Computed example of a mutant assay.
Amino acid sequence: MTQPPLVFDRTRLAANFAKRKGQPDFVTDLVVADLADRLAPVTRAFPKALIMGPDPALLPDTAQSANGPIRFEKISSLLEVDGFALADPEHLSLPARDYDLIVSLLDLQTVNDVPGFLENLRRHIAPDGLLIAAAIGGRTLSELRDAFLAADVEILGGVSPRVAPMIDVRDAGSLLQRAGFALPVTDLETHTVRYRTPLALFDELRALGVTNPLAGRDTRMLTPRHLMRAAEIYAERFSDPDGRVRASLEILWLSGWAPHESQQKPLRPGSARTSLHDVLKDTSKP
Rank of each mutant, 00 (worst) to 15 (best):
R206H: 03
V193S: 09
I233G: 01
D282Q: 06
P115N: 03
F148T: 12
S284T: 15
D98H: 08
L199Y: 01
G243W: 01
V185K: 12
F72S: 05
R71H: 14
I102K: 05
T140D: 07
F46Y: 04
A63D: 12
A126P: 02
K285Q: 15
L13A: 02
P54M: 04
D98N: 13
E90T: 01
V31R: 11
D171N: 14
D203L: 06
A207H: 11
D146R: 15
A49H: 10
P286A: 14
I132D: 10
L183N: 14
L208S: 05
R225L: 13
T11S: 03
S77F: 00
E73R: 13
A164T: 03
A134G: 06
A66D: 14
V153T: 15
E119H: 15
L280C: 13
N67K: 15
I125R: 08
L121C: 06
D168Y: 00
E204Y: 02
R246S: 06
L58Y: 08
E154A: 15
I132S: 00
T110Q: 12
L227T: 12
L131W: 06
D282I: 00
P69F: 08
Y234E: 01
S239L: 07
M221H: 10
P4G: 02
G116T: 05
T197K: 04
P54S: 10
L13I: 09
E232T: 12
A36Y: 01
K48S: 10
R44E: 13
T140F: 02
I251D: 07
V169Y: 10
S76Q: 01
D55E: 14
L39W: 05
A66I: 06
G180T: 09
Q264A: 13
G116K: 04
L175E: 05
D98Q: 08
R196C: 00
A85C: 08
R170K: 14
F72N: 06
D282K: 02
P115V: 02
L205G: 03
T2K: 11
A247C: 13
A133F: 02
A258G: 09
A182F: 11
G53L: 11
A134L: 01
G129T: 04
A151Q: 02
A207P: 05
P286R: 11
M1H: 11
H91V: 05
A36C: 07
L6F: 11
T211P: 00
G157T: 05
E232I: 09
G53Y: 03
F181A: 01
E119T: 15
K48P: 05
T11H: 09
D146G: 12
D146Q: 15
A182Y: 08
G270S: 11
A172P: 09
D152L: 08
R194G: 08
R206A: 10
S77E: 03
T140H: 10
K19W: 07
F84K: 00
A85N: 04
S77N: 01
S248G: 04
Q177W: 12
R71M: 13
E236N: 04
R194S: 15
D25Y: 07
P5N: 12
P213L: 00
D98F: 04
E73P: 04
V103M: 07
I125T: 09
P54G: 14
D88A: 02
A207Q: 12
D9Q: 06
K74I: 11
S248P: 03
L35N: 09
L144H: 01
L79I: 08
N120D: 14
D34S: 14
P115D: 02
F72L: 04
K48C: 08
